[in-house]
Every structure is written in structure tokens, then in C-alpha cells.
Nucleic acid binder design. Structure first.
Length: 195
DNA sequence: GATAAGATGTTA
DNA sequence: AACATCTTATCA
């Protein structure tokens, strides 16, 4: 496997969100290495009321305006952390939220953004760090190519502001896609009930 | 299986 | 007061 180059994250945010599916997030903690295949993502853009960057660069969202490949970490509901990767050009204010991983070692449940950060011990100390260096203790490598017919594109999760956009991507049928997806759209892309 | 409530800290 | 969530409890 090879590490994803810096230039990958310079692309359009929706392209990055879609193409991150199937790639593998690595995290080293002491001598232990976690490996999780990305199975669900969401895109956040600067002119989107649901995006943290909507109100401009603040102390909280500073990392979201960093160079592409920067990590943006935030605390959600006072309890969990969420991991984002900055996209497009520096100072733009876009990012991809990593929503779910399939643990390639089958030891942990990372079927949700809060669960990923809990299992992989990703906290505010990772904010502003970069995802494109192999020397780091967090990086992404190429994984399996996901064919177009196995990618579902639909609305995001937990958004209460604005008109919601179909900016969530996940791998059809994957068992590690977050539970919220099951409740509002099903893992296979067909609704199980009306919300 | 589904649905509701509660936990918790920062600032949307 | 709201929030890019998760776990537990209580139905069925």
C-alpha cells in the first residue's frame, strides 16, 4: 500500500469525500497500530449553513481553513470528538467528516464518528496535524477501489440547519456504516421505513 | 426490531 | 439554547 499524496486533498470536496471510501486510516498508539477502512464520509463546504466554517475562521474552526490534508477535530455534544480532513485550497474552509470505519482487525466498533475517535484515541491534540506524512502517528493509505455502483450518495446525518444536501457517501451494504444511516435510509440504499 | 431520554462542554 | 453523537432503558 502507498500513502495518499498531499495533492489528493486539493481536489473538489465532494470528489475527495467519495474517493476516500475504501482507503485505510492508520493510527499508531505506542506500539499498537489500528487500521480502519473508510466506509462513510460527509462533505462540508464554506457557504453551507450546516458547516462550521459558515461563520468564517474562528478559534474553533481555525484548522478547517488550513492547508488541504490538515486534520480538523471538534468536540460534539460535550462528549465525543469528530475527525475531519481539510480539502481544497488553504483558507477556503471545506472538509470531509470521516463518519465510519471498518476495523480491518475486527477488534473494535468504529461505525460512527464519535466511536472512531474513542477507539483510535483521537482528541484535540490531533487538531491542526497533517494526514499526509508517513512519519506521523496518523496517516491514510490506498485501500480497495470501490466501484461506482457500490457507492451510495444521500443526505447527511444530524443536520437541523439549512436545506439539507446529498453530501454523504457510504459503501453499499457495508456492516460498519453508522446506525443513523440505517434509520434514515438503510445500508443498502433503500428505506426500511418512513422517518 | 424501534423509539425516547439522558449524558456533557463549547459556542454553531 | 443549540449542537456534524452515543448509550441505555423501555417498549414491542
Amino acid at each position: 500500500m502507498s500513502i495518499i499524496p498531499h495533492s489528493f486533498y486539493l481536489q473538489n470536496t465532494l470528489i475527495v469525500a467519495r474517493e476516500l471510501l475504501g482507503k485505510v486510516l492508520f493510527r499508531r498508539i505506542d506500539s499498537k497500530i489500528f487500521r480502519g477502512m473508510i466506509v462513510e464520509t460527509e462533505a462540508y463546504l464554506p457557504n453551507d449553513p450546516a458547516s462550521h466554517s459558515f461563520h468564517g475562521r474562528t478559534k474553533r474552526t481555525d484548522a478547517m481553513f488550513g492547508q488541504p490534508g490538515t486534520l480538523y477535530i471538534y468536540l460534539i455534544y460535550g462528549l465525543y470528538h469528530c475527525l475531519n480532513i481539510v480539502t481544497e485550497r488553504e483558507n477556503f474552509g471545506a472538509a470531509v467528516l470521516i463518519r465510519a470505519l471498518e476495523d480491518l482487525d475486527h477488534e473494535h466498533d468504529m461505525s460512527g464518528p464519535g466511536k472512531i475517535c474513542k477507539v483510535m484515541n483521537i482528541g484535540m491534540d490531533c487538531n491542526h496535524r497533517h494526514i499526509f506524512s508517513h512519519q506521523s502517528d496518523i496517516w491514510i493509505e490506498n485501500g480497495e477501489k470501490v466501484s461506482v455502483q457500490n457507492i451510495v450518495q444521500t443526505t447527511r446525518v444530524g443536520i437541523t440547519k439549512a436545506t439539507e444536501q446529498p453530501w454523504r457517501f457510504y459503501i453499499r451494504g457495508n456492516k460498519s456504516v453508522s446506525r443513523t444511516c440505517i434509520n434514515f435510509g438503510a445500508r443498502n440504499g433503500t428505506r426500511t421505513h418512513t422517518p
